[in-house]
Design a protein around this nucleic acid. Structure first.
Lengths: 298, 298
DNA sequence: CGCGCCGATACCGTGCGGGTATCGTCGCTG
DNA sequence: CAGCGACGATACCCGCACGGTATCGGCGCG
């Protein structure tokens, strides 16, 4: 008799319908049926009268429904009380403007629900620092995009997005299904600012030829980037998942490896809030493996 | 945050020592450490101060200790209240005297702890009926030994015990390491009563030659059997696990297949108490597979 | 009588909980 | 001060239980 099973039972008891209860629980009907059966054998009594036309509670089932609801409520109280005692912990999250899209807001919501008392601060970074302040200690955890120098940083890939090139909607290539990078070698590409992480620069810069010319404007933020495309006709890279303003389109690049959306934190920092943040993130996205950078052992 | 993990934490909080807590929980230390870590990331706060010299509770840990204990107590209340509402159900268990040894008492204890309100009646059977009254409807579930005619009966093997021959301690063969059945073909063997299940008779009778002679005494119970050996010098089969009275020994038989200790119930009877009984039994013994007899589909 | 609804069952793949072996670190002690 | 022991953490492996898809059985209804 664990809390999960009780949650299942409460759902079934309220819906009086396995299928609907399963939907509410974000699962399918068969494992739910099985879980309720196991609960019944565990308690040693029948909780539900099943019939092809529906489900009805037995006396024991009705009793369990009340008991389970209060127990689950108390369990929630335990969680909030304990985290309250732990004190108002704070966590600073760094993001690149790019990665803070709808998935980022889902993550924020889930995390706030899990830790209502925690103070979460957000700090947006520009392209100068792919770690969004992790290196400098400004943030505890970063939601950003690989690749960058990750010595001393542990990171976990949340998702992998294909990358495309952003063009004006009236660009001659705008309605192509897909493109190769070398087809755009003669365009003006963005330059990344001085001091940008080398790995990051190598990935997000355009074709080597264009980068060598260095005739494009230097941009520090996504907004600068998009405005430049609209006004200046330059081109730049972004993930296909990104939503674009009116007048711009994104064409997939066949010869560009996908971009990893990662969550990163300092390897030495083992704070529970960070671990919990990573945990929540992994649960929201399809969980991928954690990868710790090889420590520079002298 | 499930109840199992909270039980783990309570144990650690009380012992302040992972190793001892693990012993108390009947598990090993590493998974316990891991479970506590997961609890900490789940709650997002540190619960224990670890040091090589021991463990200390943090403020949050102390709070969780209190909260968890009351929550676990309430969970137990839920169980007892619901089963109380379900009414005083009763279950009749049939056993062969043989199989009701210490393992049987462990099972009885575990079951009573699980269902304090259930009335459990025990009915001992003699060798005449290997199903111990299951066929005749006298009992709901039988703890007995295979093989017997199991049409319409579902049974589950709990354990498999090697079988030996019971001899007087002063028998010339009594100190042999092991024996073959044919070495005892000239002895007087027990006869099973008329009407005994054929499969059962075939297994538990002695060598065919001795059975054909039919010169041994007919016994109906284990006690009759043992007394006959002491007073009359006959021999008989039993499991090696069986404890014997003074003056008798049991020598392993190399050419006799092991005897299955099984739990059996009528396939049509799907009562929760029975399922729970089977569940508890499977948890106590190393769980084996359930096997349903091929139904006689006409 | 066929079809649709609903819960149960069969079967499969994967993640997690538990196991063993080993490490890192601290403190005690000869 | 070096060696050793105690203790929690880590690495790795395995079995099982949970959740998934496909299908069945039974009842009601047009």
């Amino acid at each position: 008799m664990d809390l999960r099973t009780l949650r299942y039972f409460v759902a079934v008891a309220e819906e009086l319908h396995f299928g609907r209860a399963a939907v509410r629980l974000h699962m399918t009907q068969p494992p739910l049926s099985r879980a309720i059966q196991q609960l019944e054998t565990d308690l040693g009594c029948t909780l539900l009268h099943r019939s092809p036309s529906g489900v009805a509670l037995t006396a024991a089932g009705a009793a369990l429904y009340d008991e389970a609801r209060t127990l689950l409520a108390r369990a929630e109280q335990v969680r909030t009380r304990v985290t309250a005692v732990a004190g108002p912990a704070s966590l600073t999250v760094g993001t690149l403007a790019d990665s803070a899209e709808q998935a980022g807001t889902r993550l924020a919501g889930a995390y706030r629900r899990r830790h209502p008392t925690a103070r979460v601060r957000i700090r947006e970074a520009d392209f100068t620092d792919p770690t969004a302040g992790l290196r400098t200690g400004l943030v505890d955890v970063a939601l950003t995009r690989a690749p960058f120098d990750d010595t001393g940083i542990t990171l976990r890939v949340l998702r992998s997005d294909p990358v495309g090139v952003v063009l004006r909607a009236d660009d001659p290539l705008a309605d192509r299904e897909s493109l190769r990078l070398d087809e755009l070698a003669d365009r003006r590409w963005f330059q990344l600012p001085e001091g940008t992480d080398p790995a990051w620069r190598a990935y997000w810069s355009g074709p080597p030829a264009a980068a060598g010319r260095g005739d494009g404007p230097v941009v520090r933020t996504v907004h600068e980037c998009l405005q430049s495309i609209l006004w200046d006709g330059t081109v730049g890279l972004t993930t296909l998942a990104h939503t674009l303003p009116e007048g711009l389109t994104c064409v997939a690049l066949t010869d560009k490896p996908s971009s990893d959306l990662v969550i990163a934190w300092n390897s030495t920092d083992t704070s529970s809030l960070i671990r919990s943040f990573v945990h929540v993130a992994a649960a929201i996205y399809g969980s991928a493996r954690t990868r710790m950078s090889a420590r520079t052992r002298t």
